[in-house]
Design a protein around this nucleic acid. Sequence first.
DNA 1: CCATTGACCAGCT
DNA 2: AAGCTGGCCAATG
Length: 103
Amino acid sequence: MAYSAIKFDAAVCAVVAAIPPGQVMSYGAVARAAGYPRHARMVSKALQRARQALPWHRVVRADHSLAFAVGSEAYQVQQGLLQQEGVLVRNGKVTVPQASNLP
DNA sequence: CCATTGACCAGCT
DNA sequence: AAGCTGGCCAATG
């Protein structure tokens, strides 16, 4: 099956849009959920291409650090957006407050 | 068409 | 625990 950037973008778009607030997902996880296990790096391209209002800030690295260089504009923007969602960024790593209650 | 680049990841030292 | 290495695969020059 040939790779189609359109379908890939659509799948990534859907997955990212489905990430609930206060939650984050790694690029690899998004790629897998979209059906493209090895395309972690392509997710970034897809997000750049997607001009829609996607919650791209909920996509972080597998080690929970932001994908941008520390101190860069994008970094601060993402951090701010996450903070609005209730996600804190400390020591270069995202930290989600208890989003679920214990049963 | 070959070489370089990336909003990455898992494994090893 | 923290850093390095190779692998990955499409986009770009």
